[in-house]
Simulated scan of single mutants.
Amino acid sequence: MMIKYHPTDEMLMAHAVGELTASMAIAVSAHCEMCDQCAKKVALFTEKAAQQAFDAASLNDDNTEASITDSLNEESVDMDAMFGNMLADIMSDETVPKTLVTPSPQAEISVCGETYALPRALRRYHQLGWSSIGTISRARLPLNEGDTRASLLHIGMNGSVPSHTHKGTELTLLLGGHFEDEHDTYVPGDFIVLDGNNHHTPQTHDGCLCYTVSDAPLHFTKGVSQLLNAVGRVIY
């Protein structure tokens, strides 16, 4: 199955220019490792932002160096062309020396007897401490972003998260395995953003590992799980 859920173009653009928080930048980076479509968009947005920054710098130089002679202006044009060619070379996969592309070491994470490969954006977090309730295990990333919590979330085989909605916004990036809810079936790479307008009961047959970012607790809506709402801020 193909990835169906992606970051918005606005989010990809913000990522390209470094405007996302650390937790969201990790999510977008990890998604782009699994999604060629979004990786290509980020590359284009990055190139566009670099060109705009260079154009702005050139315009500023023109305004402050009005006394430069015609010969120096011609030399400046040549330098612009050289920079443009250099930027094109940098952005081209074919021209980047392979020796400069050094991938991070392979990192795997084991949870409840299952092993998953982590994307590069998360490999530094392969030794987190886990806490578990039933088939659900969570390891929080030490990002210190106030009320925003970033975590690795594992749901074991034939497990589920009780029926809930959201007090704030929750991002779920599926890293491995599969899960489904009342709305769809999700595959690795799916980038799912939900808020208080969404209500669902995620469940998995083969187990799954997700990266989640939440800015408020879940709100459980059915059965005994509603008792968890009293301590929701502690466990989200």
Rank of each mutant, 00 (worst) to 15 (best):
H164C: 03
N73K: 13
H205D: 08
G156D: 14
M11T: 06
A88N: 12
E170N: 11
L128E: 15
H166E: 09
R120Y: 01
G189Y: 06
S67C: 07
D195Q: 08
M157P: 00
L59Y: 14
L100A: 15
T135V: 04
R233I: 00
D147W: 04
Y116E: 11
V17D: 02
L143R: 06
R138W: 04
E10P: 00
A150H: 01
D36K: 14
L128I: 14
M157G: 04
Q203M: 05
T95V: 11
E94Q: 09
K40A: 15
N73I: 11
Y5C: 00
A57K: 14
V17L: 02
A27V: 10
D62V: 12
E145N: 06
P105F: 11
T95F: 15
S92H: 07
T95W: 12
G207H: 09
L12I: 09
L175A: 06
L128T: 14
G196I: 01
L227E: 03
F220L: 06
K40Y: 05
A150G: 08
G232E: 12
I235T: 01
R138Y: 06
D89Q: 08
T46C: 05
F220M: 08
V96D: 12
P119T: 12
F191Y: 15
E74N: 10
R140C: 07
E74W: 03
V224C: 03
G168E: 12
I192N: 08
G146H: 13
T185N: 03
G176E: 08
F45D: 00
R123M: 11
Y236R: 02
Q37A: 14
Y5Q: 04
L174S: 12
T169N: 07
F83Y: 15
V101Q: 14
L218E: 00
L153G: 11
L141F: 01
G196P: 10
L143I: 06
T165A: 02
N85Y: 06
Q52Y: 08
